[in-house]
């Protein structure tokens, strides 16, 4: 039975949705330089995990705006980072893909975060901190060799490493079925790494399932692979969606937002309007800020 989403979680979900939609608009209007990758459809994953990882180190990837917003809740610094405006955590140098803020770092380079997380997990295990290092990756990332080097070490050394796999069924434009032999589950099993797969978008359900497993990683360190069967509603980046109308319609049918609206449309629509207005105000404020300044803290005065 589906749980009732809390106001806090609902607001966070819709904040991320509104942020990503606003970002695509900003891209279309030419205000975003470079590139960006939105997490439309996958917002519930970091929202569900956030209370369980609050004191842990989270490592994201090229599609991590949702991971960031779930952790910090405030969209202005993230937007400033992407737009290169004042108040950006990395002065706009990191941009959409390379963000560093307390206990959180992302890299767009596929798979490398898993190895970096392994080093952090080694520290947590040695110092008995009951913390974990959590790395978000996608299904496509499993093509990268470093993932296996890191998993091997994490299992060999029994490190508190959580690998969160957002399997959205498509790696840029290549369906997962055409780029992955076997499965994530069988690959984890090959290393003897604990694995669990989740098809639900129900936040309460996810927390009930994962809570005890994550607690166990803390008390008796070992790696854990959690695979979410999820869906990417938007393009890989911008304007590069190769899926046909039927496939996109199928994807939209799986949108968590549809399920929530069906249960309580008035409450969900009100929250959505609230978050859209909130993000619109943030966009207005941030785009008026001066350009960010790149200055190393240890640069000579």
């Amino acid at each position: 039975m589906a749980s009732v989403v809390s106001d806090t979680d609902l607001d966070l979900l819709l904040l991320i949705r509104a942020f990503e939609e606003a970002l695509l608009d900003l891209f279309a209007s030419g205000e975003v330089s470079g590139t960006t990758h939105t997490c439309l459809g996958q917002e519930y994953v970091p929202v569900a995990l956030e209370p369980m990882l609050r004191d842990d180190f989270v490592l994201g990837n090229h599609r991590s705006h949702g991971h960031y917003l779930a952790r910090f809740g405030d969209p202005a610094p993230l937007l400033a980072e992407i737009l290169g405006r004042a108040g950006a955590p990395c002065a706009g140098v990191g941009g959409s893909q390379h963000i560093l803020r307390d206990g959180f770092v992302t890299t767009g380079v596929q798979g490398q975060g898993v190895a970096v997380a392994t080093g952090m997990a080694l520290h947590y295990q040695r110092t008995g901190q009951r913390r974990i290092a959590a790395a978000y990756i996608g299904d496509g990332t499993w093509g990268e060799g470093v993932v296996y080097e890191a998993l091997n070490m994490a299992q060999l050394w029994q490190l508190p490493l959580l690998v969160v796999v957002e399997n959205n069924g498509i790696a840029q434009s290549t369906p997962t079925t055409r780029q992955m032999a076997g499965s994530v589950a069988s690959r984890a099993a090959a290393f003897g790494v604990e694995y669990t797969g989740l098809a639900t978008t129900d936040i309460g359900d996810i927390r009930r399932r994962l809570g005890p497993m994550i607690d166990e990683i803390r008390s008796a360190p070992h790696p854990l692979v959690v695979e979410f069967d999820t869906v990417r509603l938007g393009p890989h980046s911008k304007g590069d969606d190769t899926r046909d109308a039927h496939q996109l319609a199928l994807a939209r049918q799986r949108d968590w937002l549809g399920a929530l609206r069906a249960a309580d449309p008035e409450r969900v629509d009100a929250a959505r309007a609230r978050q859209r207005a909130h993000v619109a105000r943030v966009v207005e404020a941030v785009r008026e800020r001066p350009l960010s300044e790149w200055r190393s803290p240890d640069a000579p005065a």
């Binding site: 898993v114 190895a115 392994t118 080093g119 520290h123 080097e149 070490m153």
Partner: peptide, 11 residues
């Protein structure tokens, strides 16, 4: 790659 990646995490 795992050695250097792990070293980054440790650093």
């Amino acid at each position: 790659s795992g050695i250097v990646g792990t070293a980054i995490g440790l650093a």
